[in-house]
Nucleic acid binder design. Sequence first.
DNA 1: TCCATGACATCCA
DNA 2: CTGGATGCCATGG
Length: 112
Amino acid sequence: MQRESFFEMVYEVVRLIPRGRVTSYGAIARFLGSGKSARMVGYALNGAWRKDDIPAHRVVNRLGVLTGKHHFPGSFAMEQLLEEEGIQVKEDRIVDFEARFWDPQKELNQQL
DNA sequence: TCCATGACATCCA
DNA sequence: CTGGATGCCATGG
């Protein structure tokens, strides 16, 4: 029995994303389980904005596009938050996405 | 239980 | 580049 919802699991992973790094919905989905779908991650992040602990701006789609910037509370732009951490954003896309990419499955596995 | 929705991922035209 | 279709599956009505 899952004590936390799928959302909570996603939130935990997002919280672990290092500053100045980004990850994709699909990566998180694979990390949680091959059976999960990236859609669920996006769906979960949809409720993340309610929690100020969740750096949802570090989560983008597989192309590094800020697909969810439209869903942000409004005051703060996704790009602004990203550049604040040293991440360059150009045309709603993350510059050097591959270099900035943070794979939970890989990175966390090293530490564990 | 069925139906609709969704911040995705892939494939194809 | 755009747009449509399909797969994926948790959540809510």
